[in-house]
């Protein structure tokens, strides 16, 4: 619905919004522009504009080949951690959320409230205890050490539950049961399809969460060959900050751009899942 607003205030609001947009976009713009600069240019040519000679390709080659391709490895690790965690976490959370929504027996309520309460347990408070657990399981400095704790998504369970409550009509499931479908078939053939928007959202959230996770891999991993890209960038930054090694600003900046691209792509691809188009009407059709 269009509310009537005078043109002058419309113009001033638009002007303010342009300023706000600049605030949010400028740092990223600077990052991308800087990926076109050499180390020397980053300091000599600080204007936020393209340098005279573009060095993006040179930076990318240096980024991916430095130290026999350690960044390439970090990036592959990131995909492994985020992909494996997201697939697992989404599967577990979808099943559990569906169960909570559509069976809803008394004994399940307490379990649900415990899970719901755990959303408010700060994840970082768990990192140290998880470290101790992984130490006793001999999983320190392993891929599993990062993936296993990332499989737990209480928020994913909650999200699937509230979505299934409204988006998966009981009548539809009952109809499938009357047609002789087993509980598993009801879930797999009927409910899971309707749950897709929720599932995609949980996948996106857990993928992004693991890709961005810094504290957990920082604590669990100690050999740089197992690092995800985020941790690798931090390693380069701390080497760089010490100042006695070679300057790595160009590689850190280019690496930061590269580590952000998969996230940006997944956000754009899964954009429509951010807002739930509830299929609550599907039973009447």
């Amino acid at each position: 619905m269009q509310t009537k607003v005078p043109l002058s205030s419309r113009a001033s609001v638009t002007f303010l919004f342009v300023l706000v947009a600049i605030y949010f976009v400028f740092p990223l713009y600077w990052l991308v522009i800087s990926a076109f600069k050499t180390n020397a240019q980053l300091f000599q040519f600080i204007q936020p504009w393209f340098p005279p000679h573009l060095s993006l390709i040179k930076n990318l080659v240096e980024l991916f080949s430095y130290d026999s391709g350690e960044y390439t490895r970090w990036l592959a690790n990131s995909f492994l951690y985020a992909g494996a965690s997201a697939i697992g976490a989404t599967f577990f959370a979808t099943l559990a959320g569906y169960s909570f929504a559509k069976y809803d027996y008394k004994w399940m309520r307490t379990i649900f409230w415990i899970i719901l309460g755990s959303i408010f347990v700060p994840v970082t408070a768990l990192v140290l205890p998880v470290f101790v657990l992984m130490e006793s399981l001999h999983l320190i400095n392993t891929y599993w050490g990062v993936i296993l704790p990332s499989l737990v998504s209480p928020f994913g369970v909650y999200l699937t539950r509230i979505y299934a409550d409204q988006g998966v009509p009981d009548a539809l499931l009952e109809a499938a049961r009357i047609d002789g479908a087993s509980e598993w078939t009801v879930f797999w053939r009927v409910a899971s399809r309707l749950l897709m928007p929720a599932t995609a959202t949980v996948f996106l959230i857990t993928f992004v969460g693991t890709w961005n996770n810094f504290f957990l891999p920082l604590v669990i991993l100690n050999s740089s060959t197992k690092f995800p890209a985020i941790l690798g960038l931090n390693l380069w930054n701390s080497i760089n900050a010490e100042g006695h090694a070679k300057l790595m600003y160009n590689m850190i900046i280019t690496g930061a751009v590269v580590a952000t691209i998969p996230l940006a792509i997944s956000f754009i691809l899964l954009q429509r899942y951010w807002r739930f188009g509830l299929t609550s009407g599907s039973v009447t059709g």
Partner: peptide, 14 residues
């Protein structure tokens, strides 16, 4: 919304 798609560590470095 863009900054949300940027890893926290990258935002801090940037």
């Amino acid at each position: 919304f863009l900054p949300y798609a940027v890893p926290g560590v990258v935002s801090a470095l940037l």
